[in-house]
Nucleic acid binder design. Structure first.
Length: 803
DNA sequence: AATACGCTCTGA
DNA sequence: CAGAGCGTATTT
């Protein structure tokens, strides 16, 4: 038997299956999707079996046998294997990347080289013998550290030793030591054999007598009996118990947050939506729904009931949530409803925890997975519904290879399982809403809030007017008054600072110099906590300079308004207020996200100040005021989605206020109050916004009227990158249809990152059947040569942003 | 991507 | 002529 194997080497010429002989011992067990260890050139690598066949086109002598079969059960199902091929073609990525992205990171290979001693008698080098110390298998790392590499090389040539590659998973199955106590009569025998002065041993056996025949973890034995593990070891040697290893799942820290929501009576709108979903699910139709519901309209309740319905039919459910919305509050709601049937996958879990959740899914021990983007690859085999909450979120698009969109994968998997996909949002992406309008997706609408509350009253504050009246603070008079009122009433305030492009930088007031990153073409961000400047692109850090690096002036200070600065201003304006800050700096540690939220929910703070991450999912009854400190920071980005993003963000943030009994109020501070994205977000007027934005997109030829594909080139040398980009663009112009528009090449908005210059090309097309083929050709003709000269080229089909 | 191999250059 | 340093061919 012959196996076609995709090997764990991400390189263009290797991106195809290689044939291997299947040893007879594996023939009965090996399947497509199995992971194997194979020789590849002079080394050994991990590979994925993608097909099995009887004949190879290669001459027999060229075939090598598979060294080892790694999984008894294939890691990748037939469905996912097929999906990976589709994914690789769609996103123009390597098949190996498409395969690996579907598995938890813990299952990726870790390579370690070992020295294997074959014939120790032929070794005469005294230093090397001392290094070996009689061992037969030594990590090569140790040889490098001890400086005996020369001897290693010599003895490898003499075939006295060999160097072999071990392939390990990054994280293994977790096992605990279990103690199985023997039966009573045997225990008594052991007891009799013990010297009476061994008091602790006697005590332990007596404790065991009450638990004869039971299996208890070693940890528990020590804990419950109060006797040290060293004594336990002796008693085991004497025959009082057996030791065995037992597989366990790692327990991610349980959520302490209670959802506390009683599944209320559905509104008529919710009922109608649910009905359409269940009918579609029952009819086994691969139908995509767009569930458009205003903030607080109870979309989650619809999801929960639809899931319940498919679970009753014995099918499974995948729920995708943007990472930042994957709050304890959100997951608690699913856990409360479906209990142990839920697996949660988010970035807060350790690699081992993710691996364990994956195994629970694989083994069918759970039926619902709630997770971020990559959970779309959950290894279920009978999916009944797939849900993408907040479908407009750009986090559903993966930034690096394979650059897939979870929505596309969801629809593809749904076609396989003939099940519905629900795209839910208060502010659908223009792409999805356009598709719903054309009837490609079925539109479901929730226009009313679930408890019939009013939408919050929104006031747009013109910050230019504030400036005219001499108020140079971050807080307008109106917002400051509103905050003060909540403090008096004991109600809570959420203050939102849109961080993007708004973090503080250091500027010289004499010569105007802004301190920039030495490696990237971008200003450094000021971090007060360590008095440091950081580059958010390459990680460069430096101390805040005391004098201007250009003119040596001492008048150099930070500008702009980060959350830290905002916190200081709050302290000045409202000294009595208790403030919680939530941003990347305060949530870096595991569980801090949850801690901040639970403190806020318990009323331990009056004001929650934060970035993007507080815009989603936050749902507390006592929040009656939301303040947006600067609404227009996303508006002026060099991206065609700038207005859409601003509208979405403003609508989401406003939605945090007054979701329960108390009415909500929102203040949006902006320098462009007349902009339609801000004006229409005020009353959550989605449709008028949609119409205006669509007109703009039509006029400038952007999605959803045109598709776009972004090609980026980077090189250390500015002239070379411009030259290569130009060649690439000319190739595209020559091979794509004349209707297709190619913009550029131009320098990217951030023209240098990590000392590499960036150029880009934007392809806009309505219909371009030759696109994939042409891009593949471009890669084929140029990639190998370009890589040699240090150029990288990336292709991003339908990118989330274009800067 | 990682390795081996073969070429040139350097300092004896 | 060993040994580094670098470009190139190869991987089933």
């Amino acid at each position: 038997m012959i196996a076609e194997v995709i090997v764990d080497v991400a390189a263009y010429p290797i991106d195809r299956p290689f044939d291997y002989l299947v040893p007879a011992s594996m023939a009965m067990v090996i399947e497509s999707g199995s992971r194997v260890k194979v020789p590849f050139g002079p080394r050994k690598v991990l590979g994925y079996v993608t097909a099995l066949k009887e004949e190879s086109d290669l001459e027999f002598g060229k075939l090598k046998p598979i060294v080892e079969l790694i999984d008894l059960e294939p890691a990748i199902s037939e469905e996912l294997l097929d999906l990976s091929k589709w994914l690789a073609t769609q996103t123009l990525s390597y098949e190996i990347d498409a395969l690996q992205v579907m598995l938890p990171a813990a299952m990726r290979a870790k390579y370690e080289k070992f020295i294997i001693v074959n014939d120790s008698e032929r070794i005469e080098d005294l230093e090397f013998l001392r290094f070996l110390a009689g061992r037969k298998r030594i990590p090569l790392k140790e040889a490098t550290a001890s400086g005996v590499l020369k001897a290693v090389k010599r003895y490898v040539e003499q075939e006295v030793i060999t160097v072999d590659t071990a392939i390990n998973q990054k994280t293994a199955v977790k096992k605990v030591r279990m103690i199985r106590v023997v039966d009573e009569s045997s225990l008594i025998k052991v007891l009799e054999s013990i010297q009476p002065n061994a008091r602790k041993q006697v005590e332990l056996i007596q404790w065991m007598l009450g638990r004869a025949g039971q299996t208890i973890s070693a940890k528990k034995v020590v804990e419950l009996s109060g006797i040290q593990s060293s004594v336990l070891k002796i008693v085991i040697e004497k025959g009082a118990a057996f030791e065995e290893l037992s597989e366990v799942y790692r327990e991610p820290e349980g959520s302490t947050l209670k959802d506390g929501k009683i599944p209320q009576q559905l509104t008529n709108e919710q009922q109608t939506a649910l009905q359409q979903l269940t009918i579609s699910a029952d009819n086994r139709k691969a139908e995509t729904f767009l569930l458009h519901g205003v903030t607080g309209s109870g979309k989650t309740e619809v999801y929960l009931r639809a899931i319940k319905h498919v679970l009753q039919e014995g099918r499974e459910a995948i729920v995708l949530v943007p990472e930042i919305a994957l709050t304890p509050q959100m997951t608690a709601r699913f856990k409360e409803r479906f209990g142990v049937l839920v697996a949660v996958m988010h970035s807060g879990l350790s690699a081992g925890e993710k691996y364990d959740e994956w195994r629970k899914i694989r083994r069918g021990e759970v039926k619902v997975v709630v997770g971020a983007r990559s959970a779309i690859f959950a290894p279920f085999e009978n999916i009944g519904i797939i849900i993408l909450d907040e479908e407009h979120e750009s986090t559903y698009k993966q930034e690096d290879t394979p650059r897939y969109h979870a929505r596309d994968v969801a629809i593809r998997r749904a076609e396989y399982y003939n099940c519905p996909v629900i795209l839910g949002s208060a502010t659908p992406s223009l792409e999805s809403y356009a598709r719903a309008s054309k009837g490609v997706y079925s539109l479901l609408t929730l226009t009313k809030r679930a408890k019939n509350q009013e939408l919050p009253a929104v006031t747009v504050v013109d910050m230019r007017e504030e400036l005219k009246t001499g108020n140079r603070s971050m807080f307008s008079v109106a917002l400051a008054d509103a905050v003060r009122l909540r403090l008096e009433k004991g109600e809570q305030t959420v203050l939102f600072l849109n961080k993007r492009g708004f973090s503080s930088f250091v500027l010289c007031r004499d010569c105007g110099t802004v301190v920039e990153c030495p490696n990237c073409d971008i200003s450094l961000t000021y971090h007060r906590s360590h008095e440091q400047l950081k580059c958010h692109y390459c990680g460069h850090e430096e101390r805040v300079p005391l004098v201007c690096p250009e003119c040596k002036s001492e008048h150099i200070r930070f500008f702009g308004t980060g959350t830290q600065k905002a916190e200081e201003e709050i302290a000045k304006l409202f000294p009595e207020a208790r403030v919680l800050r939530m941003d990347v700096d305060t949530t870096r540690k595991k569980g801090s996200h949850e801690r901040i939220l639970s403190q806020f929910s318990e009323g331990k703070a009056d004001i929650l100040l934060g970035t993007q991450m507080i815009a989603k999912g936050l749902d507390f009854p006592n929040i009656t005021l939301v303040g947006v400190l600067a609404a227009d920071t996303t508006l002026h980005l060099a991206d065609f989605r700038a207005a859409e993003k601003t509208f979405q963000l403003m609508t989401q943030v406003s939605g945090r206020a007054g979701r329960h009994e108390l009415p909500g109020e929102v203040f949006m501070q902006t320098y462009s109050p007349e902009h339609y994205a801000i004006d229409l977000a005020k009353a959550q007027h989605y449709e008028p916004f949609y119409n205006l934005e669509m007109a703009a997109r039509r006029q400038y030829g952007y999605p959803p009227f045109y598709f776009v594909t972004l090609i980026q080139f980077t090189h250390e040398d500015l002239l070379k990158v411009a030259d290569f980009a130009d060649k690439g663009a000319r190739f595209l112009k020559g091979n794509l249809s004349p209707e297709t528009v190619i913009i550029g090449p131009t320098a990217a908005a951030i023209s240098r990152v990590n000392n590499r210059y960036r150029y880009q090309c934007l392809i806009k097309y309505k219909k371009e059947p030759k696109l994939t083929e042409t891009l593949q050709q471009l890669i084929k003709y140029y990639r190998t040569d370009w890589i040699k000269s240090g150029l990288t080229m990336t292709v991003d089909i339908e990118p989330a942003s274009i800067y």
